[in-house]
Design a protein around this nucleic acid. Structure first.
Lengths: 235, 235
DNA sequence: CGAGGGTTTGAAGTGCATCAAATAGTGTGG
DNA sequence: CCACACTATTTGATGCACTTCAAACCCTCG
């Protein structure tokens, strides 16, 4: 349910009902654009299922991935406070169901409910911390370390030896998300196998020792596994 | 005055007076630490004068600069919503005067004034956009372009030919802020001279043609000079 | 089965980092 | 005002990480 989302936690029944009555749910096919940079958007968005890519495109056509979102993640909310022109594009990278809530209703709620505006502040603060960490990664971690860190964030905090996880989406997308080329990603995986016991076969990954992997990655980061201070869930 | 800051715009006289009565102004010397990562901070901060560096340090001692702030910029506000543990460190890079406002008062204001919480939301949204752009720069622009972009942001939007500006702080700090080494910075300046007409002597810079420079830099970015969508002032 | 996208591999090139040393610039005390 | 120490910046030589381009491989799905 959308009420799981941090944005809507603690809202009253009537507030939730009002929201619900104005919500629209829409399906997007694989590679379908949800909105484009500079669009005047009229909703905030919530992923009910599927995967969504947020990105921006440079003047001469290069793409930079801002985030990749899945169930229970919100996006488009930056236009709540500012003009409605959005500074990035959004695209479904596979068949996705998206909940859309009109900006007008969100703004109403924002001025009437301090609970909601607190939620919004929490969301933005969490995102900011996460982004700060990401900038740190880009400038201080090398490619294998960034991948290792990405994998660690797919683990549970109590995972230890011989952990199996599945890559959530295409390798080339992960590469792009982590600021490297697909070829570099592929080669970096080999290095991770040799130096940190990470075995990849297709889309499934086996981490022989989480401790070993985090030792390999987290020295170049300001926090260590399980990175409790940067919660990424449900945002 | 601190009332210029976006955070406090539109507040009532009594609200401002209350804030003022709880504010503390403090001087920090060059290289003096204001707070350290994981400190339990008890205030939000506002630069009245001087320069402040926000940074984080990795487990094995590397430093990543998050931001460099000056007059009328706020920091430390991320702990308003979350626990009081802060995820970065702050240091005065030269003699600076800092205004400190107790978190407790800020939180009171946040729950009593919807104007204030809107301001806070605006601030965080602006910061987020700025940060997104920064990640884009790190992955898509090369060193000379990042420097050029940095210089362009020191220009006024109506600047055109033969613009003179002063570097706001040490070259090595700018380098670090832009995610490169001091040596790379130095060499990149030569490239900017040859390819974009940027002449540097000591701390003063002459840009022979803003158009030429922005042509050199902004192709690898999702927006072009004067980058109106990413306001950095007074934040 | 065959087409087309995703992934891997190889060879070569580029940009940035590193290390080391020279130079410029700044502040200090005599 | 100069000599010295100290720091910031520049320059050179070299190495490594990542990219680029090209080709092979491997899946998946019609």
């Amino acid at each position: 349910m959308f009420t799981n989302h941090i944005l809507f936690s603690g809202l009253s029944e009537p507030e939730l009902l009002t929201l619900k009555s104005h919500m629209v749910t829409k399906d997007f096919g694989k590679n379908e654009i949800i909105y484009l940079q500079d669009d005047e958007i009229k909703h905030i968005y919530l992923v009910r299922s599927g995967w969504v890519k947020l990105f921006s495109e440079t003047v001469d056509g290069e793409e930079s991935i801002i985030d990749i979102l899945t169930t229970n993640h919100a996006f488009g909310y930056q236009s709540v406070m500012e003009g409605t022109k959005i500074s990035h594009s959004a695209e479904a990278i596979e068949k996705s169901t998206i909940i859309m809530i009109p900006l007008s209703k969100v703004r109403e709620l924002l001025s009437s409910s301090s609970v909601f505006s607190m939620n919004m502040l929490k969301l933005l603060t969490m995102k900011q911390k996460f982004r700060d960490r990401e900038v740190e990664h880009l400038s201080l971690q090398n490619s294998p370390q960034r991948i290792g860190c990405f994998l660690l964030r797919l683990c549970n905090s109590d995972d230890n030896m011989n952990v199996d996880i599945d890559l959530p989406y295409d390798k080339s997308l992960i590469a792009s998300r982590l600021g490297m080329k697909a070829e570099t990603f592929s080669r970096a995986l080999h290095k991770l196998k040799d130096e940190a016991g990470v075995h990849v076969k297709g889309g499934s990954v086996n981490i022989s020792s989480v401790a070993k992997l985090s030792e390999y990655c987290c020295g170049s980061c300001s926090s260590s596994f399980p990175c409790e201070d940067v919660a990424e869930e449900a945002i």
